[in-house]
Design a protein around this nucleic acid. Structure first.
Lengths: 202, 202, 202, 202
DNA sequence: CATGAATGAGTTTTCATTCAT
DNA sequence: GATGAATGAAAACTCATTCAT
């Protein structure tokens, strides 16, 4: 009985979630009004407030539900004992795949100022998390001797920039690229840079 | 006579521009109301509409007037006959300096969804422009033989990602880094990547 | 059988009554929502409507159940064969004690506009009742010869004003006075007024 | 020019004031919505906010504009060098007259819980003011030897209760009494009380 | 009967835009 | 052209009431 109720409740939350995402993707953040979400979800405006105390909380829910699985998958990868390079490939692949499957949410999650502000309050921006993870892998790679000794944090930032911008292009492009393709290019850039005479460095 | 009128008009537009920027920086994008801009500019709200048909057009103007000088400086650099690597350094330096000097405007210029939508219409986002420029330099570098032969466009995208994310960190950081520092790190990453055994590639 | 049901029903109504009073006292009239009452009573919001057809009726019930005992006590006093002055003292004492014990409900019971409107319909406001009672005692006192011959109804009104305002001060004061104290002062004012040369009247 | 503008502005404020009062009188405080006020005033809802930053401020304005003149008249009386009894008569007359002229506002100003709360924040309830004034006159009367030596503050409270309740009856009565009549009765009660054998006190 | 999710009209407030002066 | 009051369409949020389970 209680189980059924809970299921029902979850179903409703999921419905609202999907409506919110649809609204977000279709009209952007500024236009995501409670009215539209309710309308899209096919429920009354007031009903939204039975599930989320306010718009912010709904936003948070959308964010968490969207980003959560991604974080989990990445966490799993980080927990393995693969070499750094393999972890990196796996993480990149996860991201690229995820992005390819959730094209519309990308802008919302990464670019939206409001979301940025909203989530920064709690110090849990997606970027922050991602960069922390990348930093860990960078350090592992340096320990393994496969990465040059650099400032792991700052290179993680740049690395994240590479991935992010790649994703953004993927999203906005009319003919999206295969995941493996993106992966190879990013790894190549990351590992070797663009300079021709890399030997000089030695 | 007409010239004087035009000057007068331009002066007014400039005043409004500065008021808009001040409002933007001080209160953020969401809170940039016509009321506040008018107030900041010391003119009546209605007067704004004598110079800009609507808020969007005002935003466009602000964007263009803000980003314009940046584009010009970059264009100048592109027009010189320096080697690709030097051009790149110069462009990066320009950007980093610019960002450091316009911290408050960063989100508005690069990330704000509304601006994105606003400017995408004409295919002239800052990103688009920047990446086109970087692609040109990449191609020059390859022609010079200092860059490996790669897909210039896609590497330009990643390169832009490096710069953009670096800028974003710079903006959000409590203790911003010196421009030269950012520059060295970005160039190092760009040229050599992170991989240790670069020699293997040969 | 039916009796048990009725008892059960009454029990429920009492529970709701107490919850309503608690809400009223804690959060004030404006914030007394059906939600809060249900919550406080530990029943479902919908259940309230099995016992009261609507919020107004609940309010009416709360009012009556709260004021009822007061009326009864006063009625008992009126029914005795004490002299008017003693009755008056007894009634005043009853009121002052009651107010001291129900501080939080005062506004709701005496001043709240909504309640006023709500109850005026039936011409049975607390004030109306109280003044009728006072009028009776005034008349008795005049018959006994201890009160001057005056317009009983109008003096009853003023007398009620004395009591009411005293109560209101008591409620709003940070250091409430002892009941006997209030009583003595009110009786003194009522009997003698403030004029110095009362003898002149004779 | 500026004068005309100011006049225009004041006219609007007055219009809103009157609309607010009308709404208040007709429907009570709870039902005084900005919508209704705007409607009653014949202006757009948004226009209200050009004159009052929020509903509370509108309320405050209504209160002040309503009560202000009364306070002024009373202050004038207090400033004279009449004997206490004459001052009292004059003050009472002012109140009774004022009440007779503003019947509908009475409940709002004296009985409304919300107003009470609202104004208590600033320690400027009408009651507070009135009682302070009465206390001063009480003290003067005692100094003059025409009033018995009593606790001026507490008797002022009761005195105010007399006046207030008289006013309230006046408001709610179908056949209001002449001001002079109310005045005589109140003064008589105040000076002599109701007790027959006042001589006993001596 | 008990429940509590669903409803939707109603509330305050904001703000881009218009327009009479 | 300049002004700023007037507008009204949203927006977020509340809450008494209903009703399927």
């Amino acid at each position: 009985m209680a189980r059924l109720m809970q299921q029902r409740k979850d179903l409703m939350k999921d419905g609202i979630y999907e409506a919110a995402v649809a609204t977000l993707v279709e009209h952007g953040f500024e236009a995501m009004t409670m009215d539209r979400v309710a309308n899209e979800a096919g429920v009354a405006k007031g009903s939204l407030y039975n599930y989320f105390p306010n718009k912010l909380e709904l936003l948070r829910f959308v964010h968490d539900k969207t980003v959560g699985p991604l974080h989990e998958r990445v966490a799993t990868i980080l927990g393995t004992d693969q070499p750094a390079v393999d972890k990196l490939r796996a993480i990149f692949r996860t991201w690229f795949q995820y992005i390819s499957e959730h094209r519309g949410l990308f802008h919302f999650l990464f670019n939206e100022y409001a979301v940025h502000v909203l989530l920064k309050r709690e110090g849990k921006t997606s970027q922050g998390n991602a960069i922390r993870n990348l930093t860990a892998v960078m350090e592992q790679g340096m320990a393994e001797g496969v990465f040059r000794p650099v400032d792991a944090g700052r290179y993680a930032v740049m690395l994240f920039g590479v991935v992010r911008e790649t994703c953004e292009r993927q999203i906005n492009s009319h003919k999206p690229l295969p995941v493996d393709d993106m992966l190879d290019v990013a790894m190549d850039f990351f590992l070797h840079g663009v300079g021709q005479t890399a030997t000089k460095r030695q």
